[in-house]
């Protein structure tokens, strides 16, 4: 598993040239998306509690609760995807890439991002047509018959932000490939297993143990 090391974009990194600025701007949108996603998770907890008590104590379950949850799920299934990509939080096998150094490493990372750009572009377009289909020909949830398209729309939106992030990362890796001596900016720094474990431990132990603030 790959996890974030301490190189989040900061106000300081934002001053490191165009890449730093770009990284930071996208990061702000990513943080907003992720906070929104967090709020939905918090809301899911609250609505679950209300549903249980409503049903048990007052015999008054929230009508369409399951449908509502299904519709809301795209927020926490997708909105934070770009944020997590920036932090190097999506799972991958580090066995080989963790051993690479210098130009070879940045070339491999760059190639990886190009593949991702292609896939995500397709997912945006066909996720969008999926939404349009649901809007034009009608698609609804099972019980409460809420329209499905707003939920489907979240997917291409989240993927669009991810695509922009991947573009910034491609730029970041290309910059490092050109000159491996530069400080990595705008890309997650992913180390070997031991370094990731350190990051993972820091996460579990809370913010106080995390290196490098925001």
């Amino acid at each position: 598993m790959a996890h974030a090391l301490g190189n989040r974009p900061t106000r300081q990194s934002a001053r490191e040239g165009f890449i730093g600025w770009l990284d930071y701007v996208v990061w702000q949108i990513e943080r907003a998306f992720t906070l929104l996603s967090s709020l939905f998770i918090f809301g899911l907890m609250m609505i679950g509690v209300v549903q249980v008590f409503g049903r048990k104590l007052f015999d008054a379950p929230i009508f369409g609760y399951i449908d509502m949850v299904e519709l809301a799920m795209t927020t926490f299934a997708f909105l934070a995807i770009s944020y997590t990509e920036r932090l190097g939080g999506h799972v991958r096998m580090e066995l080989l890439v963790g051993k690479l150094k210098g130009r070879v490493q940045w070339a491999a990372e760059f190639a990886s991002v190009i593949v991702a750009l292609f896939v995500v572009a397709i997912l945006i377009y066909y996720g969008w047509t999926h939404t349009v289909r649901a809007y034009e020909f009608g698609d609804s949830t099972i019980d409460a018959e809420y329209p499905m398209w707003p939920s489907k729309l979240v997917v291409p939106i989240a993927f669009s932000l991810l695509w922009i992030r991947l573009l910034v990362m491609a730029y970041g890796y290309a910059r490092l490939f050109a000159d491996p001596e530069r400080t990595p900016i705008g890309v997650p720094v992913v180390g070997n297993v031991a370094e990731q474990a350190k990051a993972e431990a820091a996460e579990a132990l809370g913010a106080d143990a995390r290196e490098g603030g925001r």
Binding site: L44, E70, M73, F78, L123, Y126, G127, W128, V155
Partner: peptide, 25 residues
């Protein structure tokens, strides 16, 4: 590509999976 485009939403928006964020939280 069309089928692939339907999968992220159709596999994610399923009530049963909504237990995951609760357990993680």
């Amino acid at each position: 590509a069309g089928i692939v485009g339907t999968i992220p939403h159709s596999k994610s928006a399923s009530y049963t999976l909504s237990v995951l964020p609760m357990f993680i939280l």
